[in-house]
Write a protein that binds this DNA or RNA. Structure first.
Lengths: 196, 196
DNA sequence: GGCCAACTAACTGCCGTTCGTTTGTATATT
DNA sequence: AATATACAAACGAACGGCAGTTAGTTGGCC
């Protein structure tokens, strides 16, 4: 009954999910076929179904892995005793690091979650809405105690969450600055603005 | 030979492209079918081909309409005698307004351009790269004459171009602030930062 | 009568998935 | 040590369905 693992200590299902993550990121969920995926894994398409239930299950795994990571971190930050702007910075930095280290699954979740079907679709959709509200709440608190400029909090959330998606292009660029430099630049720009 | 126009002074092909833009934005290019599109236009799928050549042609029209708009505006700004930070702000505001007024085609172009095939694919890809380099150039000029903070210019470009994509969520949100307020908030945050 | 644009019908091809079977291997039995 | 058993995991073939697209035809308008 023990799960069969390969050399890297990973279930075959985990191997499939990893390959699917790469493939979905590259082609998009709809455009990636199970035969593509099978080839990437080194197996016939039919064999995949010994380990997974459906194509959508793969998308579910990816989406909720990402959602859980962000929710868990957000909760930690909320329960900390950091100042408002420090909380915002902490969350921003977490998003940046996720995009640096796990960007394929973050992008797939962000771009393709709409291809989930209920009840997963509405579940994910709710989590997304809730997360943004929590983040907006932190920012509004910061505005109240004058740590943050008086701006529209939901707009800040939009900007922050989408700005980090730009890191996808960084991964593909030739002349990369270091990950560390990228993070510091992004935080500086978002928190302190562009103007000298 | 004169093009047949309908009541709104639009070619039937233009009507189809508009419906396709809405449909592609909603479902994604791959997931949207020609039969879906036909239904939206009020016609059978086969009838579409009296006006268009292929599904991909629709995507081409959308992508290059967007690309041309941004390239043209960028050129105007470059040739103006504005200061560096004003140039950046002008381009940022143009992106915001495009996302406010034409967001469906902007999003489709940005999300689905990878489904183009050569030579359109590499053409679009090149235009995209060139545009970002031009924008980075403006920012670097601004850093040289101390109008802009000494930050990594390509990173600024990434942030700016992706941040405006957040406006897609604004369109769907219930309690919207006005478009005018949104624009001013976004510009303020990007140019002056979050910190009070 | 000519022509544009709609229709119905159908084709090819790929999609996700299922089926029944074979293969390989780890364990139990002799 | 050799053989039999059991079971996970691979396979090839095929399914129904929907995709984009084509062909041939019909109807209506100048």
């Amino acid at each position: 009954m023990a799960k069969i693992k390969n050399k890297h200590n990973a279930t075959k299902k985990e191997v499939i999910v990893e390959a699917a993550t790469r493939l979905f990121r590259e082609k998009g969920f709809k455009a990636a076929s199970m035969r593509d995926l099978a080839e990437a894994v080194g197996v016939e398409a039919a064999s995949l179904y010994n380990h997974i239930q459906s194509k959508e299950e793969l998308l579910q795994e990816i989406c909720f892995k990402v959602a859980n990571a962000f929710n868990q971190h957000c909760e930690e930050v909320e329960n900390s005793d950091l100042g408002s702007i420090q909380k915002v910075e902490a969350i921003l930095r977490f998003h940046i690091r996720m995009m640096l280290e796990q960007y394929e699954m973050v992008i797939v979740a962000d771009r393709d979650w709409k291809h989930l079907s209920d009840p997963y679709l509405s579940n994910y959709h709710n989590q997304r809405r809730t997360y943004r509200k929590r983040l907006a709440g932190i920012i509004e608190k910061g505005i109240e105690n004058a740590e943050v400029k008086p701006v529209d909090a939901p707009t800040v959330v939009l900007i922050m969450l989408h700005a980090v998606n730009g890191i996808e292009s960084w991964h593909r660029s030739k002349e990369k600055i270091s990950a560390r430099q990228l993070e510091e630049n992004m935080v500086l720009i978002m928190i302190d603005g562009l103007k000298a």
